[in-house]
Design a protein around this nucleic acid. Structure first.
Lengths: 329, 329
DNA sequence: GTGAAAGCGCTAACAA
DNA sequence: TTGTTAGCGCTTTCAC
């Protein structure tokens, strides 16, 4: 099946390529009659302009790249959903690459984005990433770069995050106010700044309450969260409250509690950070600090737009959090 | 920041563009010394070939399109995850577009894919789609087209599905064997062939057992599934078994059962079709017929490859299903 | 109101 | 072993 180009239309109509090009864009110079003929033929032949040619010629590309450890589940899918929506609404196309938390893969994805001359790039760092050299180069190449969720520590990068500090403080305060004395706090991967921020904010609040005991544990997976929970409940003094840093952790905790037949809130209080989807699946619904991937996605896109339009003020964006009452605290 | 091209490298090295091009590809004609010089400069300048130019020149594109109602949650995220993985491993790049179950959006996404000259296209139909004209045109344009999950009825299209018929029969048989007499069967959107297939297979099995009563209901959302469940449990004779066609339905049912304080399997048996993620979140774990989005994604990509390589034999692919024992049946 | 020509970055046939 | 040239599909300046 023949692919239709301006050239082809021009041949059929006995016009020059440039006239056809202008006619399709309704350029004022072109006569109404010519415009009509061109549009009609283009329609019947199902002409679609070749984006590659346009990108090449204009030296710009409407593709935006997104690198993320995994598309599926836990927050990222709704973040991506929001970003795709905004991209589409703004005439961009989204190219998604999974790093699988693998360093090589992340670098390779970065290269693919550069080869594609992406207009901008969203990145959620892999848990392995230490060196930021490759990302520095992206910046030097003047490609707008917005980190989300798992972001680097350097202040020089654009970041869009949950307001981790505030959210973690909110959580700690809520637990304290319920008079809990023996907290189990489960966090994610220790290397991530997001984990570090949540951890220190949480600890900071607790430090004001010397009488409250808190055991902390870092879990890199749902399975580990389950194991840690089982471990702490096998001790003589059992936790009277559990704080989960994320859905991923929460699921592990719930599996453990189910196995132990420990009920919330009767035997233990439970508070998590989440977008609310998982917390609402259970009975009683789990109390959570709201951290919406969808909202963050919208925010991230705004940041990206300001970078693209060169109106970026260099500030980091944060979504604000609030506590959503369920029945487990 | 200057963008590096072959031309630039050629200038610096005092070579012609074609020599540089060949050197970078390690063409045998080029002397070792020249290759070395070119590679070194390319490295220090961080040269990356312009994919747009390559696509234009070669008249092919390594982009594969994917149109889906929504990226997030319920099966699609893991399907997409698998497809992205395969794309990456095979040198393709994935362009994702959400239709939001909106007809206009779907058509628009189709157009974007055509403009981008995608090498292939995965489509999960929106619930609104009736006319297949636009997709016929894609086929006529020789763009490999693979439908997944929500697929058209026409036999002429490539489809990759859960083996819906077998899965639904498996479900019906399992429920019958448990001696249930009053089944509530909840299905998804009535317009979808996937729903129709599951429905008729389920009914077919039941038709052999005249003594078994079965109420059927179509739900287009989680919320509606909840409402329907509440409705049937407000009747005098309550269901002794519930069959859910999907996770989306299951979640609604669980919320309803929680609200009613109806326990599984004591008060009612529960069986769903799922990839297993959600069923395993609850206690007891919910018995399900396995339908893996991830597996289906891998299958879909194989189908796509065979289309691209023109070795497609025109058969539809099905993942096989099996029943996974939880504690609710 | 329309056309010719150049050029975006790249590859490959042909020439030298 | 290297260079010249043409052309992928498109836009845009300049000429008529």
């Amino acid at each position: 099946m023949e692919v239709i180009t301006l050239k082809r239309i021009a041949e059929v109509l006995g016009l020059s390529i440039s006239t056809v090009s202008r006619a399709l864009k309704n350029h004022p110079d072109i006569s109404e009659n010519t415009k009509k003929r061109v549009h009609e033929l283009a329609d019947t032949l199902d002409y679609e302009p070749n984006i590659n040619a346009i990108s090449l010629r204009s030296r710009k590309n409407n593709v935006i790249g997104l690198i993320v450890p995994s598309i599926s589940g836990f927050f990222y899918d709704s973040f991506i959903s929001a970003v795709e929506e905004e991209c589409r609404l703004n005439g961009y196309t989204l190219m998604i690459l999974q790093s699988g938390n693998d360093l090589q893969q992340e670098i390779q994805s970065l290269r693919i984005c550069r080869q594609n001359r992406v207009t901008g790039l969203f990145v959620c760092l892999s848990t392995q990433t230490k060196e930021m050299d490759a990302f520095e180069k992206v910046k030097e190449a003047d490609i707008p770069l917005v980190f989300f969720d798992k972001v680097p520590n350097q202040i020089s990068f654009n970041k869009v995050c949950i307001d981790d500090e505030n959210a973690a403080k909110l959580a700690a305060t809520a637990i304290i106010e319920k008079g809990k004395k023996n907290i189990l706090a489960l966090f994610g991967d220790e290397n991530l700044s997001i984990t570090q921020t949540r951890y220190s904010a949480f600890e900071q609040i607790l430090s004001f309450y010397k009488e409250v005991k808190c055991s902390t544990s870092y879990c890199t997976s749902t399975e580990e969260a389950k194991i840690q929970t089982l471990k702490y409940f096998s001790k003589k003094i059992k936790p009277d409250a559990i704080f989960c840093m994320s859905d991923e952790i929460l699921i592990g905790v719930i599996k453990a509690l189910n196995e132990l037949n420990v009920k919330t809130p009767e035997h233990v209080a439970l508070l998590t950070m989440s977008d609310g989807f998982f917390p609402k699946l259970f009975t009683p619904e789990i109390t959570y600090i709201e951290t919406s991937g969808y909202k963050l996605g919208k925010l991230a896109f705004n940041k990206m737009l300001s970078c693209i339009n060169d109106t970026n003020d260099g500030t980091s964006f944060f979504t604000n959090s609030q506590i959503m009452a369920g029945g487990t605290l």
